[in-house]
Design a protein around this nucleic acid. Sequence first.
RNA 1: CGGGGCGUAGCGCAGCCUGGUAGCGCACACGGUUCGGGACCGUGGGGUCGAAGGUUCAAAUCCUUUCGCCCCGACCA
Length: 605
Amino acid sequence: MRYSKLLIPTLKEDPAEAEVISHKLMVRAGMIRKVAAGIYTYLPLGWRTVRKVAEIIRQEMDGAGAQEIMMPAVQPADLWIQSGRWDFYGKELLRFKDRHDNEFCIAPTAEEVITDLAKREVKSYRQLPMNLYQIQTKFRDEIRPRFGLMRGREFIMKDAYSFHKDVKSAEEEYWNMYETYKRIFTRCGLDFRAVEADTGNIGGSFSHEFMVLAETGEDFIASCDSCDYAANVEKAECRPPEPIDPSRQPREMLEEEVAELPIEEVSTPGKKTVEEVAEFLHVPLKKIVKTLIYKFTESSGDKAVAVLVRGDHEVNEIKLKKVLTEFLWHKEQELILADKETVEEVTNAPPGFAGPVGLKGPTWVATIADHAVANMSNFITGANEADTHFKNVNIRDFMVAGYFDLRKITPGDPCPKCGTGKIEIFKGIEVGHIFMLRTKYSEAMKCTFLDEDGAEKPMIMGCYGIGVSRTAAAAIEQNNDKNGIIWPAPIAPYEVIVLPLNMKNEAIKNAAQEIYEELKKAGVEVLLDNREDVSAGNKFKDADLIGFPVSVVVGEKNLKDGFVEVKRRSTGEALKVPVSEAARKTGEIIDEEKSTVGRKRPFNS
RNA sequence: CGGGGCGUAGCGCAGCCUGGUAGCGCACACGGUUCGGGACCGUGGGGUCGAAGGUUCAAAUCCUUUCGCCCCGACCA
């Protein structure tokens, strides 16, 4: 392709609206343009990269036995009502009515349509297992789209759904997809980890996320420094301190054995946060118990629950939700930190002075505590009175409905898997997610088959997503320098750019043209920067900004002696090669760039 | 939805406080000189100052409303 024919509107300056590097560089390199918040047009270069990511996904999915299909983006409400998600999904689901006043949505994901398809077309165990996928535009009306393609509202996703006659088959496919995803992201040249994850809105029984490690990631990953354990912080379980002590009886095992002292009131004027209290009373955060009042709604009205965690810990709301539903039988809706009024009602004090001693009020249902609290003694809590805390509080002083894993894992915690390693926290960008759905959708939508024994059974399902456009952005987050993008060769919009530095010099023009033709013939994806009246400096800057893995520089000085320069974007390393050798050498280098991608970074190590 | 910020030429911005000719750099077009790391000279085109209403002789500027965008938070297959 000739540069002059392509729409590549590069910019010298960062766009004012962009914050993260991938967003800035994609706009500057002329790959995307914004149409509305979280909604983008892909320009020729951006689209080529997206297509290349998609092609890698296709090859690997097809190779793994999946079949590509295409489902509608606009989906009827009644399928979503059948699955129960029409009510459950909330505002993120973009809904509208057609001219007949029938309700529709723009699909954020396609479990409903695919389950309906399987229900209609698959009758027998003989047709199973089956894995169907599509690569398609999705829409999620995110509360706050941001960071360009990293969190768009409209984005391109590969979503796959598998159907099985039994759990064993489904689990086999799950791990088949797990391995397939590893190959896909490795081929894309990404440094990533597969981590255990929460199942969120999609539901189901277990799940892994594929995380690209990057500082701009919005997810936190807990990873063990000695074993292969890695999990989303949302999911990572905290090993209860020894001894595991649900009954709270044996006091003799406490890490710090001291006699329980009598409870004592202390004045703490204006000291609301744990940090302020710790500083004011000259005690470590670990000696304080935080009391957080959470509010949720159930059929009988608003309820409040008090949650106790150690001062240096933070509540993991996903775990809290789970505890509320699974152990306390509250089917909560919209769990939120309680507002001022609720706090005052439950604690009889302004926010900032809540404590577990003497909670009351009609909405208060229970006090629950994190495991770590069970092993504390003579700690500090709020006194449920303005400007006052209690010292030497002990478990004897209040009622706890139970001890659960309620906190976020923190760096230095013991690994929940091996127990000996320490947890480290990394930031990551979620580019893929695989779920074991089991029968969540097949039961709701009556998607059944006849098994060998003639019994009608719901299909066992799995689902597997990859953010295609996000993967492209994540690759940039990981591969860039001050001059621009450094594309991993397999997903670069073009593999090679040929730079004739002066188009008015016939010898340069002809040599560049020749090398370009030869590369094209050899099947290399090559772009010829044939722009007239663009200075050498500009061509270099644009080539670096866009990030072509290899450039062939055809300039006067070298060409006089019959040479051109073949340069790698990743290392800056430049080879002087004879014109006649240029195409061959370039081909070799690009092959090497493509084949070494991913190899330098061992998976999960 | 809460807090903060911003809407002036395609992009990046100044002008607004203190009302009176809409400006700068880049980009774009034409002519010329340049041509290995974002060249230079000259000429030129391009703006309902986000929108609506108000105050005023006069509004980009002051007031009100509204829309959009960005950041932080809550939220998120």
